[in-house]
Design a binder for these strands. Structure first.
Lengths: 109, 109
DNA sequence: AATTACAGTAAGCCATGACTTACGCAATGG
DNA sequence: CCATTGCGTAAGTCATGGCTTACTGTAATT
């Protein structure tokens, strides 16, 4: 159930900014931090959350660590969304074909 | 920028449960609440957040209010995801074609 | 009209989590 | 080697937000 972690990870604005910073390609932690209003450790912590959610990969390049988008987490999220989308549409279609008459309220006991 | 609100809304587990409860079709607030471990006002508050994010619609049916999935919010989220997906893939492709040599660190000033 | 069902709002409590500073540790360079 | 750069982790602070218990309001039933 990784899509839940992905949603949680992408909910925070700062963390989303970190994630979107990686759209253009691999970047190091320090490089991200200098462009942002938060400290470098904060960026590190955000990257950890993103990594645990499968949204980000890291690779040691000497003393630096390069982070990049990991498509697997995104795929998981997309799959959940698509599945939900289909089910919602089917429910809607079924409702049109078989309009449920307004249900009576329960009688007072 | 509604996709941000959608992500925030879907991050909370309870709220996501409320949302997923609507997959099978329109349900009233009280109906949702009886199936859940939280109080009815809590459900109401969650529905408000989902509604503000464009993920849910409500319709007054007598004294009851029926809630159902609003595809527009989902569409917004899907669009953002797809766009991100494409950009990440392009960045990856560009990186392969034009491998950036490991950048030297800045000299101490 | 009075009562009861259904739902939204207010106010307050409390846990989660996002941030900071301080520290520890590996890798590079003089 | 010693200093410096780059990064992760620890610990503590503080705000956000999710939940509960009132209550207010509206629609339906008798």
């Amino acid at each position: 159930m990784t899509y839940a972690m992905a949603l949680t990870a992408l909910a925070d604005p700062t963390r989303r900014a970190v994630f979107e910073r990686l759209r253009s390609g691999p970047v190091s932690v320090g490089e991200i931090a200098t462009d942002m209003p938060v400290s470098r450790p904060a960026v590190s912590q955000h990257l950890k959350v993103l990594k645990d959610a499968g949204l980000v990969r890291d690779e040691a390049h000497g003393a630096r660590r390069m982070y990049e988008v990991d498509p697997s987490g995104l795929a998981e999220l997309r799959a959940w969304l698509d599945h939900f989308w289909d089910e919602a549409l089917n429910a809607f279609k079924a409702e049109v074909e078989l309009p449920s008459q307004p249900r009576r309220r329960k009688k007072a006991r």
